[in-house]
Each structure stands twice: as C-alpha cells, then as structure tokens.
C-alpha cells in the first residue's frame, strides 16, 4: 500500500506540472498586466473598495505591473524546480511550498477575471499541504486529514457539477455538449462536425458526464477494481476536455487529487459490495 508520504509527494508532483505550465503561460501573456492590458492594476484595484482591504493591498500594488508579475511567475517556476530536490516533509521543502502558496495567493488578487476552477483546486491543494505538513507541528494524522480534505473536495467538485447538470433542461435534453462544442471559445470545428455526423453521441456524452460526475464519490467506497472505473473515466474526461476545449490546466489540477482518492479508498474499513 502506498504511504501517505508518497501520496503527498505524488500529488505535489502532478500539481507542479500544471502550475509550471500555467506560470509559463502567464509569462507568455504578461502584457495583460501592463498599464494598458486587460488586467491593468489601475483598473483592477477598483474592485477593492473597503477601507480594511487597503493596508493589505498597498505594499502589493507596486508588484502588480508587467515587470513585477513576470518576476513573480519566474520565481514560481524556480520554486517548482527546487521542490524536485526537497521532499515536502523536509523543512526546506515546506518553506518552498509555502512560498509557492504565497505567490498563488498574491497573484489571485489581480486574476479575479480569467482564473478558473483549476486555479482554485491548485491553491486549495497547496494550502492544505502547507497547513498539514508544518515541520515540528504537523503530525502523520494531520497529513492524512489533509489527504481526506483534498479527496473530498475533488468528489464534491464532480458531484456538484453533475447535480447542477442534472437539474438543467439543456443537459437533460442532450444538447449541451453540442452547444458548448460549437462555440469558438470552448469548442472545436472537428468536434462540431463529429457531433453533426453522429447526433446520438450528443445524448450519450451529456448523460455520460451527468451520471459519472454525480456518482463520482462512489470511487471512495467501491472495491478498488471498480473504483478505478471512475478514475479512468476522470482521466479520459479531463484529457478530452484539454484536447477539445483547451482546458489543459484542469487536467493537472484534478489528476493531482487522484492519489488522495486512492489513499481514501484504501483507508476504508468496508466497501459497499
């Protein structure tokens, strides 16, 4: 059986790939943070109207420009590379991960528009790992609690997404996938042509996503060989959404939770069947 140390390291490794790619993508698009960019701090700071938020933002506002944020993303990449050499359980590993978490928190103040569920899952995992592995105070039990939290959040995310789709008439009618794939924002011409050629695939894909997402938490309780069905489905689902919809960061953020699901499944003293 995999130990929680290995599970934590595996989570961190998978997550790091996604965070590294994401940081490089931001560096490539750094002009969005310039004074005439979409996320110019001149405009974005208007979001913070409460007086009690001003002391927090004042020292950071000098960082929120093209050059400052480019430096932040480069530092983030260096932190990720350094984490390859230090396990999380070492003091240095924990410090590096804490700094990575800090950089994610700082950039989240200016990326209110443009961030997505993968960014939230990433920050959630990093904060949990930092909190649960504090050198000197973090206990093995706390590390396990952290893994439970990550696994349960992953299950919650799938179930909520599944239920929200089940209550939607468009999803139940089997038209939602076709409609999303036909947009230039999240779809593709090839996928649209495929679904036009095989209309039955629309209904299949909609119901497949609704059922599997809603029932996803069963992967915690079922015997491992059956639980694997959900994880293989999840892998395929995220790979296809990366391929067709360009949602590459979701793949890494959600795959990073799967070792926690494995851990929880193997902790269960009972199985449903």
């Amino acid at each position: 059986m995999i130990s929680f140390n290995n599970t934590t390291q595996l989570i961190l490794l998978i997550l790091s790939v996604g965070v590294f790619i994401s940081a490089l993508e931001y560096i490539k698009k750094i002009q969005v943070f310039s004074s005439n960019g979409l996320l110019s701090w001149n405009v974005m700071q208007l979001r913070w109207t409460q007086q009690d938020q001003k002391p927090l933002l004042k020292p950071l506002s000098k960082l929120f420009n093209e050059r400052g944020l480019a430096a932040l993303f480069v530092i983030r990449c260096l932190l990720i590379i350094s984490l390859l050499f230090y396990p999380l359980q070492s003091t240095m590993g924990w410090v590096l991960l804490s700094l990575l978490g800090l950089s994610l928190l700082i950039s989240s103040l200016i990326t209110y528009y443009g961030s997505d569920g993968s960014d939230q899952m990433t920050i959630l995992i990093v904060i949990t790992l930092v909190a649960c592995n504090l050198p000197g105070l973090g206990t093995p039990k706390l590390a396990e609690i952290g893994l439970w939290f990550i696994g349960l959040q992953a299950c919650l995310s799938y179930t909520v997404a599944g239920i929200a789709k089940l209550v939607s008439a468009e999803w139940r009618a089997g038209t939602a996938v076709k409609d999303v794939f036909s947009t230039k924002t999240y779809g593709s011409k090839k996928a649209t042509l495929f679904l036009q050629k095989y209309p039955a695939a629309n209904g299949f894909l909609c119901w497949n996503v609704m059922i599997m997402e809603t029932l996803f938490p069963l992967c915690l309780f079922l015997p491992w060989q059956y639980a694997m069905i959900f994880l293989i489905w999840g892998f395929t689902f995220h790979f296809l959404t990366a391929l067709i919809m360009g949602l590459n960061s979701f793949f890494w953020a959600f795959m990073a939770t799967y070792p926690a699901l494995y851990f929880i499944n193997h902790q269960m003293p009972w199985h449903l069947f």
Binding site: W48, S115, G117, Q120, M121, E170, W171, A176, T183
Partner: peptide, 21 residues
C-alpha cells in the same frame, strides 16, 4: 473570500455557455 479560495464547482451548468461573445 478576497483570494478566491471558495470554489464554485458547477462547471458549464446549469446553463452551458453556448454563445461566442
């Protein structure tokens, strides 16, 4: 939630984005 730490997990539901702006 100033850091966006509370996720909303209802991806593409209940109303999937079916328009390009």
């Amino acid at each position: 939630d100033i850091f966006g730490l509370i996720p909303l997990w209802t991806f593409f539901a209940p109303h999937p984005g079916k328009r390009d702006y």
